[in-house]
Simulated assay, not measured.
Amino acid sequence: MKVFSGNSNRQLAEAICAYLKVPLGKASVRRFADQEIFVEIQENVRGEDVFIIQSTSYPANDNLMELLVMIDAMRRSSAKRITAVIPYFGYARQDRRASGRTPISAKLVANLITHAGAHRVLTLDLHAGQIQGFFDIPTDNLFAVPVLTRDIKATYDLNNVVVVSPDVGGVVRARALAKRLDDRNLAIVDKRRERAGESEVMNIVGDVEGKDCLLIDDIVDSGGTLCNAADAILAQGAKSVTAYITHGVLSGGAVNRVSSSKLRELVITDSIQPSQAVLSAHNVRVISTAPLIGEAINRTALEESVSSLFD
């Protein structure tokens, strides 16, 4: 087994290698003057089981192209098996045609990764589970729930916790976490989205009065929905609101929006390399997925069950 990394999240790759007790593979991923990407694998990979760690986060197109070129370099260097480890799968929100004459970009990206030469994909908390079916190669979708659960149990008195889904679509994810937290109560934020990028919270379904509320979601981007939901929950008498989100996209002024909000804390994972603004924010905290992804890589290399990680 050999593990390599692009430039999108080298810190996570190094942490995963530390967990696996293997060195990070030597590869040069650089750009020419016109920004063309060039990859050179600087060690022998012939006959090896290769894992390439690369989130397709901002800048999404550059990081995606890095991944594709690295896969092609490995294939042409006679690697036995190539696994694309994509902690954050960009374009996942374009998983269907929301209106006429629009693409299904998540399927296009799946095709690109497959045709570049990947033999399997390992990813984390896909925005839409059906994206696994967009790939014609084996795809393991890991869940961050065990990582979030450990942090919550170490931080909160579970007797006063309510798990909250920020919308109806996230109920399955919230229920899975509530079950791991000894079947905590569940609440749902009912919201009406007036236009793209904006949301208006209408109602809270469930009892949150006097409770420490945990908002659970897979992606936080602009942060507007999250902050509005926190305001609505606190207006219903909640004691505090903390958000646990897998992927901290946090584009534009999202960090400032979260910092000035009523959120007690925003907890995100390192699936996307945190920016300096994220690391400096007083109420944003990053927890590591390296042990989870590292164990999944180890089990994949040993041909052992990955799904049993979540039993």
Rank of each mutant, 00 (worst) to 15 (best):
V39R: 01
E48G: 11
L24N: 12
D62L: 06
P59S: 12
L68S: 01
L64D: 02
D49K: 11
M70W: 01
L24E: 11
A27L: 09
D34P: 14
T56W: 05
R31K: 15
E66K: 05
N63M: 10
M65K: 03
R31Y: 12
E36P: 12
E48A: 14
L24P: 13
D49R: 15
K26R: 14
E43I: 04
N63S: 10
E36F: 03
V69W: 05
I52D: 01
Q35V: 04
E43G: 15
V45I: 15
R31T: 01
P59W: 06
M70C: 06
V50L: 15
R31S: 11
L64Q: 04
I53C: 03
K26Q: 12
S28L: 14
I37F: 05
E66R: 10
I37Y: 09
D34F: 12
E66F: 09
E66P: 11
E36G: 00
I37E: 02
V50H: 11
A27T: 12
M65H: 03
G47Y: 04
S28T: 06
N63P: 11
G47M: 03
D34V: 05
T56G: 02
S28C: 12
S55K: 02
F32D: 14
A27K: 08
R46I: 04
S57H: 10
N63H: 12
F51E: 09
D62T: 10
L24W: 14
I52S: 11
N63T: 02
L68M: 02
A60W: 00
Q42M: 13
Q35W: 04
N63C: 08
E66V: 04
N63D: 07
N44R: 12
L67F: 13
V69N: 01
S57I: 10
G47I: 01
I52Q: 08
D62C: 08
R46P: 07
V45F: 06
R30N: 07
D34Q: 15
Q54D: 09
S57P: 12
I53E: 04
L68Q: 04
G47D: 07
L64A: 12
I71P: 00
E66D: 01
R46S: 03
V69I: 15
S55T: 15
D49M: 05
L68K: 03
I52K: 07
S57W: 04
R30K: 13
M70S: 02
E48S: 14
L68D: 00
V69F: 09
A60E: 02
V45G: 02
D49S: 11
Y58Q: 12
A27N: 14
I53K: 09
F38I: 02
N63F: 02
Y58P: 07
I41C: 03
E48H: 08
Y58C: 05
M70H: 01
N44Q: 05
A33N: 15
Q42H: 09
Q54K: 05
E36I: 06
L24G: 10
